[in-house]
Structure formats: structure tokens, C-alpha cells
């Protein structure tokens, strides 16, 4: 196996440009599972875990290489809360938000927040330079993205109008270290509520009809909240698998979203 350790983004991109089959390695928490299950034997790996630029954060961006343990103390409340539920302490110390974005699992814990705040994904290639991809165009299917073969995810670009009120919750059948059966972020910005859910569709989704319903009222009544929850349950597209059932996921999506709206109101 060929291993290239990149110390900056340019080196990483040059290595990727030279060999587009090469894989980026940051925390390894997804890639190594595939290796250990003998599903995968990488031939060429570009180590980016020491690229300082990828670890930078500011009010406008979060570097792709920032690990979850750092995000646990983020000033963005929902991000901090969700970071604390990613895997285990060991996973959080290694895994990065960029890895979560690149893997694009429907259950990716960070993705509902990205969708709720309407963040963009910054991707860069040596030949094509930088592009900012709205999240909805980035995630295209179950573990599928619009990332080009020569590109890397470098940062999450945050909106200027970051919703200050935001809440996260995630359902799993265990109190820690669990893959979500439904996860949800509700953010309340100047334009109203935004509701994003994970594990209920091939990608993370927003529920525009439910949002519209909610945002049509200044202070939603109990009845409106019930209708909102019912709309969320209708709007999501979950499946039945070994982790849960479609019916439960619909129900739970509604309950969870409703609770988070109430938390935003209080």
C-alpha cells in the first residue's frame, strides 16, 4: 500500500490528482471498519489527519478535519449536543465532521445539523479549484455524494444568518454508542423554523411542508404542533430494516420534531 502523508491541503490535492483512486484518511473510523471486515484493501492512501488547515474553525466555517470531541464544546448548541452522541469517546477523538460528510450515511449524526442550518460543503480539487456545494446537492443517495473523483471535502461553510436557537435529538435503543434510528435538528432563525431529519430517507432531509405549516403561525398552538408532527411523519420516507420499522420511524420523527420545536419555543 502506498501511503502519502499530506501536511497541507495543496499536498493532499496534488497526491489525489496524481492518483484519483487514492483515498483520504482522517479519523479512519469508517474506512477501517471496511478494512477490518475484509471488504476493502486500500491501495493508496493520503493521510490528512495532520493537515492543520483542515482543523481550523471560525464563525463562518468548520474545517473538515475537526474531530467530534472538539465539536462537543462548540458554541452551536445542536452541533455540540450531536457531537456527544457520535459513537463512543474513542470514536469522537478520531472521527471528523468531514468524514461524516464524505461517508454520507443516512444515519450520519452531523448531517441533520448541516441541513437545518443550510450549510454548504466546501470541496477543492487541484485542477478545478474550490466550489461551494449546497448540502442538498452534495448528498445524492445512500452513501453517495456529488464529490468528484479528484476532490476533497475541506470545510463546512456556515451561513451568515446562523440560527441562534437550535436543538438536536437522536433516537437509539441504547443510551450511548448507538446508530440513530431517527435523528432530528430543529433550528429557529430569522426566517422561522427549519427541520431536518436523519435515518428516515436515503439522505438527510428537510421537511418543507411541515416547516411551512409551522412557519405560518406566529406561536403554534398545541393543535398546530400536532398537525406539524403528523405532517413530519407523512413527509419522511423511512424504511424497515434490522434497526427499526418504517411505522415507528414515521411516528418517532413526528414526536421528536415536535419536541424540538417546543424546546426552540421555550
Amino acid at each position: 500500500m502506498n501511503f502519502t502523508r499530506a501536511t497541507n491541503i495543496d499536498e493532499a490535492l496534488a497526491a489525489k490528482n496524481a492518483d484519483t483512486d487514492a483515498e483520504f484518511l482522517a479519523g479512519g473510523t469508517d474506512l477501517m471498519v471496511e478494512v477490518n471486515l475484509a471488504h476493502h484493501r486500500p491501495k493508496s492512501v493520503i493521510g490528512i489527519e495532520n493537515v492543520a488547515e483542515l482543523k481550523e474553525t471560525s464563525t463562518s466555517r468548520i474545517g473538515a478535519g475537526v474531530t467530534w470531541d472538539h465539536l462537543e464544546s462548540s458554541s452551536h448548541q445542536a452541533l455540540a449536543h450531536l457531537a456527544r452522541t457520535v459513537g463512543s469517546p474513542q470514536i469522537r477523538a478520531a472521527g471528523t465532521i468531514g468524514g461524516n460528510i464524505g461517508t454520507a450515511s443516512p444515519a450520519g449524526d452531523g448531517l441533520p445539523w448541516i441541513a437545518a442550518i443550510d450549510a454548504k460543503i466546501e470541496v477543492v480539487s487541484q485542477s478545478r479549484g474550490k466550489r461551494l456545494v449546497p448540502w442538498a446537492q452534495f448528498f445524492t443517495g445512500v452513501k453517495r455524494t456529488s464529490l468528484g473523483a479528484d476532490e476533497m471535502v475541506t470545510a463546512l461553510v456556515l451561513p451568515a444568518d446562523m440560527p441562534q436557537i437550535q436543538h438536536f435529538a437522536k433516537i437509539g435503543v441504547r443510551s450511548a454508542m448507538v446508530i440513530s434510528t431517527v435523528s432530528c435538528v430543529v433550528a429557529r432563525g430569522t426566517d422561522g423554523f427549519r427541520v431536518a431529519l436523519g435515518s428516515v430517507a436515503p439522505t438527510v432531509i428537510r421537511v418543507p411542508r411541515a416547516e411551512q405549516l409551522l412557519n405560518s403561525e406566529t406561536r403554534p398552538s398545541e393543535a398546530a404542533l400536532d398537525e406539524f408532527a403528523a405532517t413530519v411523519a407523512k413527509e419522511v420516507q423511512p424504511i424497515t430494516d434490522h434497526r427499526s420499522t418504517e411505522a415507528y420511524r414515521r411516528h418517532a420523527a413526528g414526536v421528536l420534531a415536535r419536541r424540538l420545536v417546543v424546546r426552540c419555543l421555550n
Binding site: H81, R84, T85, H167, F168, A169, K170, I171, G172, R174, S175, A176, V178, S180, S183, L256, R259
Partner: peptide, 16 residues
């Protein structure tokens, strides 16, 4: 949340 159903997932309101 660690002492409520749902644990660190923060799903649960004490009232529920």
C-alpha cells in the same frame, strides 16, 4: 439526559 430514557441522544423530556 444521561439519566433519562434515550441517554445522550437528548430525546426525552422529563415530563414524558
Amino acid at each position: 439526559p444521561r439519566l433519562l430514557p434515550g441517554g445522550t441522544g437528548r430525546t426525552t423530556e422529563p415530563s414524558s
